[in-house]
Design a protein around this nucleic acid. Sequence first.
DNA 1: TCGGTATTTCGCCAATAATCGAATTATATT
DNA 2: AATATAATTCGATTATTGGCGAAATACCGA
Lengths: 112, 112
Amino acid sequence: MGIDELFRALGDPTRREILRLLRDGDLSAGELAAHFPLAKSTLSGHFTILRHAGLIVAERRGTTIIYSLSIGAVEELAAAVMALLGAGAVGARAKWPGTAPRRKGSEKGEAR
Amino acid sequence: MGIDELFRALGDPTRREILRLLRDGDLSAGELAAHFPLAKSTLSGHFTILRHAGLIVAERRGTTIIYSLSIGAVEELAAAVMALLGAGAVGARAKWPGTAPRRKGSEKGEAR
DNA sequence: TCGGTATTTCGCCAATAATCGAATTATATT
DNA sequence: AATATAATTCGATTATTGGCGAAATACCGA
């Protein structure tokens, strides 16, 4: 349940969609898989990654496994975001893109 | 500056360390590179990824390029986290990991 | 214009990640 | 015990990523 696993888990659109679906209620592995054009084994891999990141929890009921959102990682995620960008960024140091001093030949979106 | 680029950019420890360093003040590409045992070209690639994610901005000054934290992405990041886990997770639905199922068998209003 | 410094871009390679179908495990039902 | 169903694990394949050194680009000063 480290920061790295957390951000990496969220860095995939399929996995974010799984989380979004679970926001509307718990779903079984099969029900979740039905929402994607991917093999069940592929989805199963995504579940494992999300579980290791602390973003979902699994509960077996009979032959099916029900997945639910877990807020265990939310606190860690919020703390990480704040530590990286939060307090420092809100202060005077950070810049809104486009508000940098406009010197000759400086950035401008795609500064190359 | 999409959600995907944002999370992927944050999913690498070197890039997170770059952001952490920039929290204490702007630094040039060379000054940043000096903090890592990596080739400058490798760091340059990380800068590009962070810039595309909207997490940093570049300003050329003479031959050097100064990087600064940008809060342009913070709002988007916060919104994404909330959309995925926030409101829904804070409610009654999500579980803390390790929380025993309240009552086996039938507390899911409607098992779908 | 020439030389020096800072940084990026370009090929290339190794490691990691995403995907699939087939085989396997776990549970329930008859 | 045999069968059926749900999900995972396994082995192989392809795509993406992170890394390097060398070459190219951008800028400054003499």
